[in-house]
Design a binder for these strands. Structure first.
Lengths: 241, 241
DNA sequence: TGACATTAGTGACCGAGTGTGACTAATTCG
DNA sequence: CGAATTAGTCACACTCGGTCACTAATGTCA
């Protein structure tokens, strides 16, 4: 990203890229890409473009262009860093100059992007997935963006079916439950989870089973929202927080 | 706002302000202030500073300053337009140049602010409360900001007790229910509302009663959150939207 | 002045939703 | 073959939320 060539090819980017000209911009667009790895959520970081940077890793970012909408820029930056597009993006937060940005920009707009499990970063070592509790030192503004993005993701979780964007097209219900447990940060009861999922008509079974290791094989499902249960519920003051 | 003098005094601002020098900025901070008027939610608009503007009204805004944090700028702009500060502010959305802004700025960051019922705009006719369904023509980006702010407010409604920020310090439960009904856009059942409110320990009664017109006088309450009901609930897929 | 309308506030019922444990099913491993 | 492991379902108890019905306290008006 930044002044690196925008190869759309997923791999083959030269490991020794032309060192970019460091330029200061007023406004940057930064992308926080999440994907699950096992029971942990990971975030994509790329090697700092500036060799003199205080931190060796940073979020994918670029200066905002006046001829490009913000969400288009976020999609472009994600594609540039990952080789493939994110399955879902959403604006998270704008932050100002009270926290240091690797590009020394005055203001930044952070985007959240979800990537299905199993998507590898492009080869070449310029980008890697880091578990949330093993993030290397990054600029303070980038660190705050990761936290905000995680909060936004959890908030979005019970507003729209974003969990499916972290899974491949077909998946087992145990996989789906695991994603929810990772995002919510707590265990869920199997029976409750499946009962609620069934009532919402969000998935449909396909005629395929998968056996991973030992144990009974699991049926595969696909995301296929059917009806819109217009359940008008009361005011739940008690889950305010 | 903009180049008008920042009088902190609520009134007495000269009606004939010095016409501001029109300057182009890359980034603006815009504030959507809400307050209830009866059964309707209203938004604060100010007269366009530029006499040649396409629209006569606009949201309070100012160019972003590199030496000021974004939320501080939003608070300043709100105070400048209203004479008093907002009871609660929150960043809503950043938008780009695909929608026209009255200041022709490339990018904008919108903030939402809540103002307790009964707060008047400063005299002088430069600012007025407009019901949401009677908003005069404003620039497209400002129109979109109002919609986004309303969406954010409704989303925030069941995350944190924001409804109390739209009420004076003491209020009746009927007033509180009315605020919720305005924000949710639907009627609530009295018994259900009070039961849930009681269970959440968010308000406490004070030894005062108010009689408005006919009917039994209502007891006054004050916002005083007590316990934090840590009700761990299951996954509610059915209210996904 | 007394019936009535109006607003405030509470109690109780009932069905739907949720937490939980226990059960069956199908596979791998030894 | 039996134990271990993972998938999937059932049933029970309990809570929560929608609703109706009732009481309480005031103003209005004939």
């Amino acid at each position: 990203m930044r002044d690196r060539p925008q190869t759309t090819a997923p791999a083959g980017r030269p490991a020794v890229a032309a060192r970019p000209v460091i330029r200061r911009a007023l406004l940057s667009v930064d992308v926080v890409l999440f994907t699950p790895h096992g029971r942990r959520l990971t975030v994509l970081l790329v090697r700092a473009a500036d060799p003199r940077a205080r931190e060796r890793w940073e979020l994918p970012w670029d200066a905002a262009r006046t001829d490009e909408a913000l969400d288009v820029a976020a999609a472009r930056i994600a594609r540039s860093a990952l080789g493939a597009g994110a399955a879902w993006t959403r604006q998270v937060v704008a932050s100002g100059g009270d926290q240091r940005h690797p590009g020394e920009t005055e203001f930044s707009i952070a985007y959240l992007g979800l990537v299905p499990a199993g998507t590898p970063p492009p080869v070449g070592g310029e980008a890697s997935w880091f578990p949330l509790d093993e993030i290397p030192p990054v600029a303070p503004r980038h660190r705050a963006m990761v936290d905000s993005a995680l909060g936004m993701l959890r908030l979005e979780l019970d507003q729209s079916p974003v969990a499916f964007r972290l899974l491949p097209p077909t998946f087992t219900l145990s996989q789906l439950q695991e994603v929810y447990e990772v995002l919510l940060g707590r265990k869920l009861h199997k029976a409750s989870f499946r009962r609620a999922l069934h009532a919402a008509w969000l998935v449909e079974p396909i005629d395929e089973w998968r056996s991973e290791g030992r144990g009974r094989p699991a049926q595969l499902f696909r995301y296929a929202p059917k009806k819109r249960r217009t359940s008008r519920r009361g005011v739940r003051f008690d889950l305010l927080g």
